[in-house]
Each structure stands twice: as structure tokens, then as C-alpha cells.
């Protein structure tokens, strides 16, 4: 059990190092780099032209639909992982059960397919 907790100490050390490197590197960088902000430098970049309109423009609604699809199938993977780990200890029944579950989600995918959600047209 002691062993088990120690592994998470290692994970915590890695995450701490992951936070530390950007902090240290950017702090050291601050001491080294010049800082002479001028107005043109701080304008939004638009290939050299004066920026037109707002930066946060409206974007295609399609991204939202993909996000919805992602949520559905990501939840499926959450169920698939423990199922796969325990599969050898379980019987044929769980295979059928998981098949029914996946089939129901596949019906959803086919519906989205039919509704042309997966077709990318640039509007």
C-alpha cells in the first residue's frame, strides 16, 4: 500500500516540475530580454494590415456539433476502459451488453452522418 502511494508522489513531482519549468524559464527570460513596448508592436497582427473589426469573430456552428459528438463518445470510452480491464473475469453476457451499448451510440453516429453533421462545408 505504501508502494502505491509513492507512485503518486512521483506523479506529483512531475506535475510540479511541469509547472516549475515555465515559471523559471519565463522569469529568467524576463531578466534577459529587452522590453520596449511601442504602440505598433502591441496591435493585433493581421498580415501587416490595420486590424479590421473585432478579433473574436463569429465562427462556424459546426465546431459545437463536433464537441457534442465528442462528449458522447468520450463517455463511451470511460465505460469501455474498466470493461476491457475486467473482461477476462466476466462472461459472454458483458460482451453482449457492451455490444448493445456501442450499437446504441452507433445509431447516434449514423443519425449525425445522415443529418450531414460530419460533412464539412465552409460557410
Amino acid at each position: 500500500m505504501e508502494n502505491y502511494a509513492n507512485n503518486y508522489v512521483v506523479v506529483a513531482i512531475f506535475i510540479a516540475l511541469g509547472i516549475l519549468l515555465p515559471v523559471v524559464a519565463l522569469t529568467v527570460g524576463r531578466l534577459l530580454r529587452p522590453n520596449k513596448p511601442t504602440n505598433p508592436k502591441q496591435t493585433t497582427y493581421e498580415s501587416g494590415n490595420e486590424p479590421v473589426g473585432e478579433g473574436q469573430v463569429r465562427f462556424n456552428i459546426r465546431y459545437y456539433l463536433f464537441a457534442l459528438m465528442f462528449v458522447i463518445f468520450d463517455v463511451e470510452t470511460v465505460f469501455l476502459y474498466p470493461w476491457a480491464v475486467a473482461y477476462n473475469k466476466l462472461g459472454l453476457f458483458v460482451l453482449v451488453e457492451m455490444f448493445v451499448f456501442a450499437a446504441m451510440l452507433l445509431v447516434g453516429l449514423l443519425y449525425a452522418w445522415k443529418k450531414k453533421v460530419l460533412k464539412w462545408n465552409s460557410v
Binding site: 527570460g29 534577459l32 530580454r33 529587452p34 520596449k36 502591441q42 496591435t43 493585433t44
Partner: peptide
């Protein structure tokens, strides 16, 4: 990259 000036756009 380390000694390059760091610009953050005003907006």
C-alpha cells in the same frame, strides 16, 4: 527565443 522581446497584444 529566450532573449527575444515578449510582446503581448494590447487587446
Amino acid at each position: 527565443l529566450l532573449v527575444k522581446e515578449d510582446t503581448i497584444p494590447r487587446k
